[in-house]
Amino acid sequence: MSNVVLDGLNKSFGDLAVLDNVSLEIAAGSFVSFIGPSGCGKTTLVRVVAGLEAATSGSVLVDGAPPRLARAYKRVGLVPQQPGLLPWRTVRANAHLLLDVNRHANPPDAANPNTLLREVGLGDFMEAYPHELSGGMQQRVALVRALALHAPLLVMDEPFAALDEITRAEMRGLLNQLVESRGVTVLFVTHNISEAVALSDRVVVCSPRPARVVADIAIDLPRPRSSDVEDDARFVALCADVRHALHGAMRP
């Protein structure tokens, strides 16, 4: 589990300001979603945390260290929007990909990708190639690939955006189950309100670009969560809270 501290974070690409003074403290083991209008800079925010982008000013600390170090020590598991599987590798080999590079940074307690693949229901597809899988299955491989690192921090950038609604709901359940049993810290970018509420301990609502934090809503739904949680009256109320905050942010 990692704790993440953002302090006065600014980021601009040339004249274009993308992040505006973002400060947040994220407790170890919590699941935090970032929601905001598309193009607002929420993806940039998590990319800065993952060390893929440098901040213009302000600081980011992952367990007290700069993201560059967290990256070098493989303490961040990235799940991109597109699964990005290598078409010439089998499911098993794709799940192994991140363990095959920068090997000396592999943790001694790295998870066995084969066990994980079985856990997410891909036990019968280990020798299959990505083109033989559905979109949901491909994204599950991407999830396993990140979890296999046994990294204390998972950064997920709209991982389910390209999936159909039914698969998406299924993935929500799976993700809840996976992170609840592992106690990993998760930063999750989405623009789906119910997805954010169903998964998170905290939903951070961002303004249109440049992204500012306009609301920080605690989701105190009990865990472990099943898909029934979405029928809960509190779930519906929390979704409404997030929606109002989001609409408030959209207004100039």
Binding site: A50, R71, K74, P80, Q82, G84, L86, A105
Partner: peptide
């Protein structure tokens, strides 16, 4: 794919890797 390159750099894969 850019996503793949991003992924590789997220774990500090070397250029030769």
């Amino acid at each position: 794919e850019p996503a793949t390159l991003e992924l590789m750099s997220s774990v500090d894969a070397s250029r030769s890797e």
